[in-house]
């Protein structure tokens, strides 16, 4: 591993995103629009559904978006021959993966800061815990999404397949993460499954932040999400082969 190369990769990925105005705009504006839509849905409802669902969705958006963006970008890197060229150069596999993780972490930080600022500032989302910690959780979620996206891109040979991994890997996690029904109320088997899915901990962290100002549990959840992200990066590194058949 070499910081010069890792940062070089991160910088290059950020330049590519900046060059693609439409993607850059969507990355930053879309989560804000979706939060506004959610707020609008419940504006006439007597129950505070926005407060109940909002934090979970703030965890979800960066996860989903980064999963999709990363799996497609890495696949493009594999199929265009640039990955083969890089791996024939003195570049560590972790340099490549961490470079991507850093770049998308930066994007996620900006994205989440905007969505959180809008939700709390303008839309009146009620958060008990520190607001900056909400952004930290969102960044951890985004890095997790990137890491999983990098990992699954190894199993896709076309961009069509890569996009199909989203319903396979992401939707079950959304269903079981506690957003629809508290995880304790799931059938025991499903609860056990939800206990080993990373998004459950991301949602837990957001829920805790919205209901209490104690941060101990939140940090524990963030640590679990980060551990999952690192494991996915490790697996991703194992799928990058210098020699291919």
């Amino acid at each position: 591993m070499n910081p010069r190369i890792t940062l070089g990769v991160a910088r290059r990925v950020l330049t590519q995103i900046r060059r693609d105005h439409r993607t850059a705009a969507m990355l930053l504006v879309l989560p804000c629009l979706l939060m506004t839509l959610l707020w609008w849905m419940f504006v006439d409802s007597p129950v505070q559904f926005f407060d109940r669902l909002g934090p979970g969705l703030l965890a979800l958006f960066p996860f989903i978006i980064m999963f999709l963006v990363t799996s497609v970008t890495t696949l493009r890197e594999r199929s265009s021959g640039t990955l083969e060229r890089l791996l024939a150069m003195p570049m560590g596999k972790l340099d490549f993966l961490l470079g991507y993780a850093i770049a998308f972490g930066v994007v996620a930080a900006i994205q989440s800061a905007l969505a959180v600022a809008l939700s709390v500032g303008l839309l009146g989302l009620d958060v008990q815990g520190p607001i900056w910690l909400l952004t930290v959780v969102a960044i951890a979620d985004a890095v997790l999404g990137s890491a999983l996206g990098l990992f699954v891109s190894a199993f896709a040979t076309t961009e069509f397949q890569a996009v199909q991994f989203m319903p396979a890997f992401v939707v079950p996690q959304i269903l079981l993460c506690g957003l629809f029904i508290p995880r304790e109320q799931l059938p025991p088997v499903l609860e056990a499954i939800s206990n080993v899915l990373p998004l459950s901990y991301a949602t837990d962290a957001m829920k805790t932040l919205s209901t209490t100002s104690a941060t101990g549990d939140v940090w524990q959840d963030v640590a679990i999400v980060t551990a999952f992200a690192l494991a996915a990066l490790g697996l991703g590194a194992a799928t990058l082969r210098r020699r291919t058949p």
Binding site: I5, V9, T15, Q16, S80, G81, M89
Partner: peptide, 29 residues
Amino acid sequence: RSRIGYVTQEVSVYDDLTVAENLTFFAKV
């Protein structure tokens, strides 16, 4: 790895970067 220069048949540079940006990146690597 640092002693071999390799050009594949397909163009393996980044289409969305300029020529100079591509080379600056690979120079860093």
